[in-house]
Amino acid sequence: MLRQIRTLMLKEFTLEWRQKYALNGILLYVVSAVFITYLSVGAKQGNIGAPTWNALYWIIILFSAVNAVAKSFVQEHQGRQLYYYMIASPEAIIVSKIIYNSILTLVLALLGYLVFSVILGNPVQDQGLFVLNLVLGALGFSGCLTMVSGIASKASNNATLMAILSFPVIIPILLMAIRVSKNAIDGLDWSVSVDKIITLLAINAIISATAYILFPYLWRS
């Protein structure tokens, strides 16, 4: 099982590295999205309030994550999926995809954070909490989005379906992440955020566990 996961993840990374345009495309997506926001709100450095900064940041991360993860099942041909079906267990596939997508989402989030800080200013006072929250958010996003992209890939109408299926499901994670990140921006004491972080962890665990249990049924069809 562990070996299968490792092999599958290695495969994901190799595949991504070979088709660099997809990775570069999504990275560019983040940068352009940040720039569009920057121009639209017409803000100069430090001109925009912390809550707005926070909300804009998370919305951009959400959309980039949806776009980045959406292709995780679509990019592979029917035939190749059949091949995986024969050689690997569905559990190994979903776990490897979730881990891989978390790393991808985390990279996107960090890149977004960097560009945001450069262009819009960086109001975050508690970097540690902010980054920890990013890691948790990325885990939750990828757990939810990987499963939804698996579902959407079975249906034809992909892009719309991906969005409408994932947004409502992802909202609990998004809300908790936004709250914790607001605390991090304000530099509040960690004790204030502890229960929220635990809730976020719990939601992540529920979503990932459900995905893990349900994926074999989805995969078989």
Binding site: C144, I151, I207, A211, L214, Y217, L218
Partner: peptide
């Protein structure tokens, strides 16, 4: 089948919500 999978998945997110 896919409806059932999404139904259970959505319910798992609906409860904390």
């Amino acid at each position: 089948r896919i409806g059932a999978v999404y139904n259970i998945f959505a319910f798992a997110a609906f409860i904390p919500l």
